[in-house]
Design a protein around this nucleic acid. Structure first.
Lengths: 226, 226
DNA sequence: TTATAGACGGTACTCAGTACCGCTCGGTGG
DNA sequence: CCACCGAGCGGTACTGAGTACCGTCTATAA
């Protein structure tokens, strides 16, 4: 092991200084000096001042991509859930670091925007994957892929932020539950081939009536819509 | 009318130069010079180089906020749909300008990120409004508000981008249809008082099986979930 | 020992954004 | 007619992020 120490020292120095003086009032020179390296070295390790806070978004993107890539038609939704869980676990592994980053992104608009932009890249990945999986090139399917990806990412962020705020004891269970809820929102996987315009379509509703009391009108509806 | 000409001339100059040389290769000095004003004047009219592309996101935010504010409990979802339509109409009014902006944001990552950050602010507005409307402070409700807001915004963006790409002849009709689809995803407004945990709950699905073939499993599901 | 590649530090530059100052023009009241 | 005043503008100078380039040091291989 040669000396990847500089990279770590820079990140440490950055977080400490951001805590002490705030983000804007800390210059790259300050960080480099505190880490005991030159300014040039900072930019060798991190593309920008913001990047020192989000070191491995690219790696996370690859993680998602890889997990989604290894899935068949029938396991697509499982892959989505897995990928989401993977991302969550990544943050949990970071532990306190993730929480310090959250404290920063909550206060500094520039960092918040950067975080949001990163999330949008995850969402894009999911959207493309889901659209591809649905195979259906129609406008309706395209919209549904968009909605699904948005919901998946929103659910993840919701649980993640709860954990970051210390409001969740078992975030993995929560995200699994949230994903079930999200996927339940959307019509089932729909048989890949032989789309059935025949058959039976039900709409969702909730009623206090008994099922048997509903059956006649149900049959009438189905009959009418054929 | 005094002379708001400078502001417009600056925007025009910016778009022309961005088209000609690209965004990064155009400096604020270039824009100011072409508009025939000083560099200082540019920053008097626009907070940043990026802002010249997105002049009125703040106004749009106010537009949404206002529309949402003037709604009762029973018209909340209508207000959401209206607000979304308002935003879409704003872009449509811009016409060619919106399309030029789209061309830029498609090419320049920095501008794309900025756009995404703005959209996130809309989404936040919707999320807070929906959560407030639901009134329910439980975690499940909070998640549902998050999902709904994400879906609403995703639907809007989907239709907007279609129109920007020239793929939609009647974007207003499309966004109305998309909003109906989004709102249909989520359980009905739920009766304010006397929630019925009794009764019958159906989930939405589509199948090629006949209704009669499904009835046994349906009854079993209902029985199990009581 | 020499050669080479990689990591580093330093200098100098561009450009976005901020702070400040001083000018001019178009009223307005005396 | 004049003195005043505030708004809009241009210019200068500064900070700080990010880039380009160059010379140096060191470890490892030949």
């Amino acid at each position: 092991m040669r000396k990847p120490a500089a990279r770590i020292r820079l990140a440490d120095a950055a977080f400490v200084l951001f805590d002490e003086r705030g983000y804007e009032r800390t210059t790259v020179d300050d960080i480099a000096e505190r880490a005991g390296v030159g300014r040039t070295t900072f930019f060798r390790h991190y593309r920008s001042k913001e990047a020192v806070i989000f070191p491995d978004h690219d790696r996370l993107l690859e993680l998602i991509r890889d997990r989604l890539a290894t899935s068949s038609d029938s396991t697509a939704l499982v892959a989505v859930s897995d990928a989401v869980r993977l991302v969550l676990l990544h943050y949990i592994d970071e532990g306190d670091l993730a929480r310090r980053r959250y404290a920063l992104t909550s206060k500094v608009p520039a960092l918040r925007d950067r975080e949001i932009a990163s999330v949008a890249r995850y969402q894009r990945l999911f959207r493309e994957f889901i659209a591809d999986w649905m195979g259906d090139p129609t406008e309706a399917a395209s919209l549904r892929a968009e909605l699904m990806a948005a919901a998946v990412v929103a659910a993840h962020n919701h649980v993640l932020r709860r954990w970051l705020r210390g409001e969740s004891a078992d975030p993995v269970a929560e995200v699994d539950e949230a994903m079930r809820e999200v996927l339940a929102l959307f019509p089932a996987p729909q048989s890949p081939k032989g789309r059935d315009d025949e058959g039976t379509t039900l709409v969702a509703f909730r009623t206090s009536q008994d099922l048997d009391a509903l059956l006649p009108s149900l049959r009438r509806l189905i009959e009418d819509s054929r």
